[in-house]
Amino acid sequence: MRYRLVVMGASLGGLNAMQVLLKSLPKDFALPLAVVQHRDKDFVDTALPALRAHSLLPLREVDDKQAIEPGWVDFAPNDYHLLVDGDHYALSVDELVNLARPAVDVLFISAAEALGPEVVGVILTGTGVDGAQGLQAIAARGGLALVQDPATAEAPGMPSAALACVPQAVVLPLEGIGPFLARLT
């Protein structure tokens, strides 16, 4: 298999988008999937259980130094940046990036540095520009850049910003992203 990790970033509208996307990933999806979803403090209590109902794959919040392994959808915990460090995750409480913690750029740039061309980066709906630089880093190292078609996004800001940075990215409607990822494996 060419790829070893899928990293995904979403902000406003992300929970609805994630429901659609997770529903279309098979139970035996062979790539680890790491997600940064901008959120408010109560996200863990309410949103993860709600998403679980839509996902065949188990969802969890990452603990520091947890192994990166397929068969899971791993979410950045509240108020921490999520990074890829070799074969495991790492957390940090460094400054906000793009006004966010967790920030999509932090996850994507660390993934590009750790895994080079073996990373798939996916930018979903959201406001702001977080993730654009990170997706550029992934593309620059030969990884695969994927962006939700801004026209199908609840908030087109983030996907549009990502496309402005990475014009060669693959653009897909929301419904097409899960099946596309499933075919990569």
Binding site: H81, D85, S92, D94, I109, E113, A114
Partner: peptide, 12 residues
């Protein structure tokens, strides 16, 4: 130190 976050802080 964990390389990914150390690298970020050094760049900063």
């Amino acid at each position: 130190y964990a390389p990914a976050s150390l690298g970020r802080r050094l760049r900063k």
